[in-house]
Design a protein around this nucleic acid. Structure first.
Lengths: 166, 166
DNA sequence: GTAGCCCTTCGAGCGCGCTCGAAGGCAACC
DNA sequence: GGTTGCCTTCGAGCGCGCTCGAAGGGCTAC
């Protein structure tokens, strides 16, 4: 994809980078990573990793020279953050979530509530996206395009019953 | 949903407004609409409707007093635009698409290419969103939430990339 | 030593997509 | 005539999420 330059979708490219990261740059066992390695493996730029730390989404140890030392836990957290960001969860909410997580067990109810809200939001988004996809394919048909020789619209299991037909 | 105020997701709310618009504010037969009526029925604010027109996404007729007069065609276009926007399609691309559509039949190949690219992007997004949803539900399970109707007591934390780590 | 390179902090800047406010027109009603 | 209220144009401003550049530190290789 990204066939035509002016159709480039940065968000999607980043997302694909992250997917690749999840597949190829699998979480290291208990090795540590430099910021450059983290950037490469998570698909999140070093600039952005520093930014996330600055705003309190991450708390990263330093080595003797003051360089950041990322652990497997940090790696997992960055993946979590990027997945939540992908769903459109605002950074302000992620900050709150992370703060709650740092605060201890008694914040679990609120964290759970946040996740439940996010889950509902994501389900709604899936419904909407499917709706938009239907719109696109209808228009493609109008432009003399067959919906496609491919069998499955997407390699995903339908999370939701499709939104009332179309 | 939108249980807690600081979890509010404007995007989602707008999206829901639009969904409602599609259901309730069904396209008028061949009546015309004022900007306020369009705003109400599409869930797109009057400010934004004017903005869309200003940047060339819309071309709206005026009445004798210079007030905008929206037709059913305009309504349909606004719905199309909002659905494409929902997929993350940048306004710049929509501008190009609209310009092509205005240019005539010979631009159909390029329009088709844009739609195909967008279709792929949306499919990728669906996959990603589903992935994120899985992540959320796994974490919810860890927080003692059952994803389904059946209840299983899960007092133990699942080994998850818990950002709650620390 | 010094070159190269990756790292650090800090603050400013940017692109996107709205969002808003000011200033005024026109029509209807009291 | 005056008030209300929705409409107009125009340009400025804003919130978000990065993104970048400047200025400098420390390590290794030559």
């Amino acid at each position: 994809m990204t066939a035509t330059a002016d159709l480039a979708t940065p968000l999607l490219d980043q997302a694909m980078a992250r997917l690749r990261a999840q597949e190829t740059g699998a979480p290291p066992p208990d090795a540590t990573l430099t910021i450059a390695e983290m950037a490469e493996r998570t698909g999140v730029s070093a600039h952005t990793l520093r930014y996330y730390e600055r705003i309190g989404l991450l708390e990263v140890a330093r080595d003797a020279s003051g360089h950041r030392v990322y652990t497997a836990t940090d790696f997992a957290r960055v993946l979590f953050l990027t997945r939540m960001r992908m769903t459109g969860m605002p950074i302000r909410d992620l900050k709150r979530y992370v703060a709650l997580a740092a605060a201890g067990e008694e914040t679990i109810p609120e964290r759970r509530a946040m996740l439940l809200a996010r889950r509902d939001a994501v389900k709604a988004q899936l419904t909407e996206l499917q709706f938009a996809l239907d719109t696109i394919e209808a228009k493609l048909t109008g432009y003399g395009c067959v919906p496609g020789p491919e069998f499955k619209p997407a390699p995903l299991r339908r999370a939701e019953p499709a939104p009332a037909g179309r």
